[in-house]
Design a protein around this nucleic acid. Structure first.
Ligand code: MN
Ligand code: MN
Ligand code: MN
Ligand code: MN
Lengths: 227, 227
DNA sequence: AATATTTTTTAGTTGGGTCTAAAAAAATAA
DNA sequence: TTATTTTTTTAGACCCAACTAAAAAATATT
């Protein structure tokens, strides 16, 4: 005898799909294509189609064949829970375990699936209720609200403006390692001295040191707040 | 092209089987029966047979049909790694997250499968290299050595002897909660005043309080060190 | 030693999650 | 508007880890 209120449980695969659909939906409200999901899940389009039908069955996404997919409120809640866990664990790994910011993503991909509400509450308290993760990304609240931080891309900052590095828009290890090598870390005081029209690179002074060149590709993925 | 030295990876299911075969093998060297494994894995004997064939295939157990199973050196190494992770995470949950000793086992069952050598090394250091978990069980070293603690069962202690509670031989929540209710926690100073022949219960003074009765069933699962 | 019981294995299914190849639909180009 | 290309879905398969039912082997009982 099945109850309407039975706690529906989620597999790792389902959680990963929901999380990825959430990521692809951020900042707009178009439906997400099967191929886009396939790319991020590292699977094939045919596999995605199967999974989308299953997720729709469970009420976590709205999906009609050939029309793309978007999260239902229930699905978004699950996705935000996973993102919350992922980011809290990343804070733990950096703050308590001494990892560098480029080393934590893969481990958090595993830890985000640990199922225990009380654990995640205690972890949050242990970390003193962080607002952002080691990459500057906001941590959803336990009620499923994603704080809006409203940062700007460094590539959009005009010459002669000053700002602070607040986050990154990409967490691949190679990118983060490059930033570290360039002395670019969270909280760095940036002064955009020039924008070079030729290649859209910018000359930036970091913490008042002599200016260095930052490529457009890099600047695009750096998030800042004007000061 | 496959290499002889390829890192063979383990699924959750395989890790659980190896851990359980390890547990069933402790303290003797008879082979383990299919049914014994089925009981602890909460599966059916037919499923166990399938898995044992697979584990033997991978070289982690010695298995011949109808003859039972035992771990190979490689399998024991994997099992000890899982036990090490399980116990270190339990220490973390109690010492850092503030859980009670009866609340951590289920969560550790999940955390023990997180795969990251560097994480477990850092966790070990963060916890200041604990020798035992919250239930008094020894933590295997990173080289795969299980320390022998040589504790005695409280049920084997003679009248008028004094001892200290060092561990428990069972980590079910109800049992641990009962111990807590009886003021029996790790480190408690015990004085066995009488052994009651009728039901093998014992009269024990805990931390110098007036003696209470402890059933044989409970005493059997309490590990102590004579003082 | 013959029979009955228990344990273990085999045979055949199932469900979850993936794949490839082929078909169908949608989007783009001619 | 028709043809071509791209995207998506379907069909059929595979692997993993579980299951049930039936057969076989081992063990216990008479
Ligand atoms: Mn991450
Ligand atoms: Mn992050
Ligand atoms: Mn445990
Ligand atoms: Mn334990």
């Amino acid at each position: 005898m099945s109850s309407k209120f039975a706690q529906m449980s989620t597999s790792f695969a389902e959680e990963n799909y929901l999380k990825i659909i959430y990521r692809l939906s951020e900042g707009h409200d178009d439906d997400i294509s099967t191929n886009a999901v396939a790319e991020l899940t590292q699977t094939k389009a045919a596999s995605v189609t199967d999974m989308l039908r299953k997720l729709a069955e469970k009420g976590w996404v709205h999906y009609q064949k050939y029309q793309g997919v978007r999260l239902s409120p229930a699905g978004e809640k699950i996705a935000l829970g996973i993102v919350r866990k992922h980011r809290l664990w990343e804070v733990f790994l950096v703050e308590k375990m001494g990892f560098n910011w480029d080393e934590v993503h893969e481990i958090a991909e595993q830890l985000e699936h640990i199922e225990s509400d009380s654990l995640i509450e205690k972890l949050d308290a242990f970390l003193e209720f962080p607002k952002t993760d080691p990459h500057g990304d906001p941590i959803p609240t336990k009620n499923g609200v994603m704080p809006e931080l409203g940062y700007l891309h460094l590539s959009d900052i005009k010459a002669n403006k000053r700002c602070v590095l607040m986050g990154v828009a990409k967490d691949s290890a190679v990118f983060l390692q490059l930033l570290t090598k360039m002395q670019l870390s969270l909280g760095a005081a940036l002064h955009v001295e020039e924008v070079n029209a030729f290649d859209r690179s910018i000359s930036v002074s970091i913490d008042n040191a002599p200016a260095v060149f930052i490529s457009h590709e890099v600047a695009k993925n750096i998030l800042v707040k004007l000061t």
